[in-house]
Simulated scan of single mutants.
Amino acid sequence: MAIAAASDPSDLIRVMIVDDSVFVRGLAARWISEEDGVEVVASCRSGLQAISGFAAARPDVVILDVEMPDMDGVQALPLLLAAKPGLAVIMNSSFTTHGADLSLRCLALGAADVLAKPSKASGSPDEYRRDLMAKVRALGPAARRRAGQAAVAAPKDVPRAPRQKPIPAPAAAPAVGASRSGASQIRAIAIGSSTGGPQALAEVLRALKPAAAHAPIVIVQHMPAGFTATLAKHLTETSGFPVREAMDGDPILSGTAYVAPGGRHFSLDLDGSRAVARIEDGAPINFCKPSVDPLFRSAERIFKSGLAAVVLTGMGSDGASAVPSIAASGGRVIAQDEASSVVWGMPGAAVATGACAEVLPLKEIGPWLVRETLRGRR
């Protein structure tokens, strides 16, 4: 294992690379060394090496291979997270069904995000480099904030003041912020998420089970191609109702949740009087594919005031440009609050529009949607 000397200035994002491939370690280290504001503090060929050298390296972000000899990523992840509260771990996975399944297990254990190693199916090295650096830059500062908060946390035996609920931004349209008795009944739920999204989706969908029979649920989660079918399988197991990867022409039915396939845009269209899925291979939107914007905009056109759009944790601003039109149609936009987000990029951008009806902690989003979906149906 190679450990770099500490560097100045102290605000550099410190990155540990853990991969049994010499080529991958060397490539990632070269890319990071060419970027400002980040540095490689350790390069390890196994989970065992990463654990033994962790205290000396003091990373903010770990790029962790899923499959390795001696100790793989699934085994190493809990030990790394225990070594430093707030640590951001990006799983580096091969483009296989087995790799996707292991990656989803790691996300459930607390990994922040997943990357697919370059292949013919999962993108070019240039795309991989761009995604890698974007995730490192988004997760590094957030990891430092969480680590700092953990370091100054009050002792467990000292009572702590309750966290205040964030105050929603002022409404941009008369329909937003209207009294609950005057709001339209929710007929469909659209969700956009990115970094930290699989864990957030699992919690929201699990809470949504009582309302799932009354409103279809459509989802865009930023994830590599080939991983979303596995994500749908995991969400089915945790939610208790069917979650499937959307296919072009699928009727959008209550009682089911539909996830955009990785690497394809997902939108809704009308076939007569019923909503159907449209899956397209267009250019990236907001540097994302799938993008939240096409789903939100098409859902608003079909469901209008009956739409609830949810923006969960994620980097960037995908989905925010559709928020004002949803509000103007009488639909409601709910954003995850900063304290419960892994990265407050997407929800923060949505809040900045001034058109969110609610800004809620993750644990309150599902129950809010259930109340509003079942209101008037009991």
Rank of each mutant, 00 (worst) to 15 (best):
Y128D: 05
I17Q: 02
A28R: 06
C44S: 08
R137L: 07
I51F: 06
R297F: 03
D269M: 12
K135A: 03
G110L: 13
L104E: 07
Q199H: 07
L270Q: 11
M68V: 04
G314I: 00
R129L: 15
R375D: 12
P85L: 00
K233V: 08
Q185I: 14
T230C: 10
R375F: 15
I219R: 15
P85W: 06
M346C: 15
M346H: 00
A175S: 13
A232T: 04
M68S: 12
G272M: 12
P155E: 08
L139G: 10
R180Q: 13
V323N: 09
Q149F: 01
V22P: 00
S254M: 11
V66G: 06
D101L: 02
F95R: 15
G263H: 03
S193Q: 04
R375S: 11
M223E: 04
T97R: 11
L205D: 12
V114K: 11
L268K: 13
L360N: 04
A188Q: 09
A327N: 02
A200F: 02
L307F: 06
S52K: 14
V62E: 10
G376Y: 11
H222F: 14
V41A: 15
A138P: 03
L208M: 07
D248L: 12
H222C: 07
I252A: 10
V66I: 10
P367T: 11
L104R: 07
K363E: 07
A5V: 11
P294I: 06
V136K: 04
A147V: 03
K233F: 14
K84S: 13
M68F: 12
I191H: 13
L205A: 08
G197A: 06
D269G: 03
I279H: 02
L132A: 01
L253V: 13
M71V: 12
R14E: 07
E35A: 13
G255F: 00
G331F: 06
D281S: 05
I186S: 06
I365Q: 11
T313E: 08
T230F: 00
A147T: 00
A352H: 01
V292N: 00
M133T: 06
